[in-house]
Every structure is written in C-alpha cells, then in structure tokens.
Write a protein that binds this DNA or RNA. Sequence first.
DNA 1: CACTCTTCCTACCAACTAAGTAGGAATACT
DNA 2: AGTATTCCTACTTAGTTGGTAGGAAGAGTG
Lengths: 149, 149
Amino acid sequence: MYVSARSDYALRAMLVVAAAAPGGGGELVKAGALADSQGIPLSFLQGILVDLRRAGLLVSHRGTEGGYALARPAVEISVGDVLRAIGGSLTTVRGLPAERAGYAGVATGLRDVWLAVHGAIALVVDRTTLADLLGVQHRPSGAGETRAR
Amino acid sequence: MYVSARSDYALRAMLVVAAAAPGGGGELVKAGALADSQGIPLSFLQGILVDLRRAGLLVSHRGTEGGYALARPAVEISVGDVLRAIGGSLTTVRGLPAERAGYAGVATGLRDVWLAVHGAIALVVDRTTLADLLGVQHRPSGAGETRAR
DNA sequence: CACTCTTCCTACCAACTAAGTAGGAATACT
DNA sequence: AGTATTCCTACTTAGTTGGTAGGAAGAGTG
C-alpha cells in the first residue's frame, strides 16, 4: 500500500479538526492553524481541504471567523473514508481498480489475490475511526492486530 | 495498495515459469516465450527478469539453449517474495517504509494504522505461494477470505 | 575458430503523477 | 466599504512509470 503525501496530510488535518470538536460543527479551525500544527505547506493543504469538503467529510465557512469543521461526528468517519476521498480506490492494479484486472492462462488466480488484499486493507481501514485514533493511544480496532507472521 | 505494471508482469512471468517446471531447475523458459504467452513487451520484461534473478528467485542460462527457471520450488516462493523483489517495501508512507513514519501530536495513532495495514497485506501475500495460484483455482489461503464488511 | 542464439546491461525517451507555488475571485463579517 | 479568509484554477518542478534501442558477454554448434 502506498500512502501519498496528500493522503497523509489529509488524515492529519482531519485529526486536528476532530480534536477541536469531535462532535462535528461548532468550533471552526482555520486552514492556517491546521498547517502550523502539523507542519504542512499551507497552499498545498488548501487543495486537500477542498477535496475533503467536496467528499462531504468537512464543512467550511468563509469570512473572518471562517474555518473548517467535521461534517459528522468523529465516530462516524473512518480512515478509509478519508483515503478514498483523496486517493480514489484503495487497491489498484496498473492504475485500475482491483476488481477489473484481466488475466489470462496461468495468471488467472492473481485476481483473487488482489481482491483478498483489498478486503484485508478495507477491514483495517474501515473499522478505524478518527475517534479511535484520538483515544489515548493506538487501538486500530477489531481484527487489526494482524501483525502477521 | 498500488500494484505497478512491473510487479504485475513479474508475477505473471513467474507463474509461467512455475507452470513449466514447478519444482525449479530443469526446463528452461526463454524470455521471448514469457513475453508472448502473457502479452508483455519483451524488452521491458527483460529488465524485470534481471531483477528477479538478482533477488534470487530465478536462475538463468545464456546461450542457444538458455532461458529461465525457478531458483526454488514453487511451493517455497510467495507472492510477497516477488512483490518485494520488484517494488521494495510493501507499505510506504510518503515514500518511506511504514515503520518509520514520524507523527506528532494528535496524529500519533496513525503509525499504528499503517502497521496494521502492513500486517494485513503481508498476511495474505506471504501465505499465498506460486503453487497455490497454479492449483485449479483461487484459494488465497488462510485468512484471505476477508472479503470485508 | 566463426557464427548464432540468448541473456545481460546501460542509456535513453515520453507521459504521467506528486508535491508544491502563485494569484486571483467569491464570500462573510465588521 | 474594507478586510479576512475560504475557494478555485493554473502553473512549475522533480521524480517515477512504462517502454525502447543498442550493444557487450557468455554458451552452444558447425
């Protein structure tokens, strides 16, 4: 799995907003404050915030007392929601979503491997919410402890 | 997870070689035959084959009766082995391996999410061998049926 | 030895994506 | 009206990906 800078920044920004008002609404956080608190280039972050808003994860207000807030409570926003808002499909094979990988002959079985990987990633990422991450420490939820062999 | 064309081609080539001689050794398969049977550009494939050889997954012989064969039996080569030979670390955050992602403040928990994802991917990919994929059909092994929520 | 076949290696090219910058328009508050 | 701030579009720069080309080195054959 490749986590791009965009995705990483997006998650960190969402966490800062969530920390300010985990219930969503109210408390608006300015883009400048987000950039400062996590060391993210402001103008780069702004493009990311627009994506998050368009995806329905953030609400924004312009003007002097403007800023961003969660569109819904932190408990209802998963890491997967943010990743998909920024990066599109979680698993891609040569640029295409894993579901439509066309294989022939002896390679036929590969498709199922990608689907299994996709499922495994989704399981972790969809069950971990922003609220989980703000709780004292790590606890990536449910079946997340698959620290593998 | 992003599967690049290189990784995809590498796996398909390995499967063709494995199908010819699942035990490794003996039967040499020529690069041209690999390219033809899976529709891979030959000159691009050659670079990939060199990587696989350097990673110790294939052995090669030059000359008129040259070609490629598995360095060890197909049962002992996992999908993860091939992916790592080509793509480096399975999970990267902004280009770095997931283990060394430095987070501050409210973002601290993110690191554990990436580690959990990494573990989940590794679980699928390391338990599925080339021999598994050649068996009649899919059965990505063990906990692979995590078709998620 | 000369010849042919095939792996091996290096350099190169075009297209795309990622990361970051800049500048302006729209909007809300005072 | 004025100011702060979000919002949007276009641009730049650098790196990666996918793919090509050309040749050197080794292995076998006549």
